[in-house]
Amino acid sequence: MKHTESLAFQDLILTLHRYWGDQGCAILQPYDIEVGAGTLHPATVLRALGKKPWKAAYVQPSRRPGDGRYGENPNRLQHYYQYQVILKPNPDDLQDLYLNSLKAIGIDPKLHDIRFVEDDWENPTVGAWGLGWEVWCDGMEVTQFTYFQGVGGIEVDVVSGELTYGLERLAMYVQGVDNVYNLKFTKEGTTYGEVFLENERQQSEANFHGYDVDGLKRRFEDMVAEVSRLLAMRGPQGQALVLPAYDQVLKASHLFNLMDARGAIAVAERQSYIGRIRDLCKACALAWVEEEKRAA
């Protein structure tokens, strides 16, 4: 890789936006609720259900409170970006489309070793699973490539292709940088560290030592109750309030992650918490599918 010509972090994002926008994707902005992975954005999890075609791409900040390292680890962050693409149904040439996106950001497959290595993806918290690969570039995993088979515990009607690019890793690779904080965020030289290092320090401390555990637990229970309440209500057109209900599931999920980072989840409780979130997710997924049938 010629470092001098490599894309800055934000240019990488802008290039992918341009590329996937040209493929007919709606370019969305990040969801405004904390999520652990781009998949959890309703534009993926909910839209993957039902029969309606859908194409979208967006950047999603991923919050993983337990992964915080106070900004001291060169690759681990409690807040990082994923670039998420969902195409439903998956086009026949999704692999080619993907490879062309790598070319667009400057990875030449005749110079680098691109591989599709088996990886069966699963997210137990949202009851989602799929088959696909980790895509490797010169031995580094740069993308998760998945054909969704189930979401919210329900087998999908139509298979979506999902691409999740790990943006920081990809940028580190493209820029030839070994420490995430040294990434060029802008061409002019603003670094990733200047943007995010302080955030990592403060958030790590809050994640591990700051939040009030009892408060987190209380709010978790509140969110759980809210999901059922909202799902029981009907909107002006008689629809179930799936989207607001799902927002509460996301909040509950993040509260769980915070409790976990605080070390407040006993081993024996863990499965039960995850099970509760999965059940809520499943309730939303079922309501979403019902809603699509009702509207049709």
Partner: peptide, 20 residues
């Protein structure tokens, strides 16, 4: 590797080395 790289594999060897 799965490719005979046009540069004889220099770039991909260096990339793999960094990942390692």
């Amino acid at each position: 590797a799965n490719v005979e790289a046009t540069d004889g594999g220099k770039a991909l060897a260096a990339g793999n080395s960094r990942v390692l």
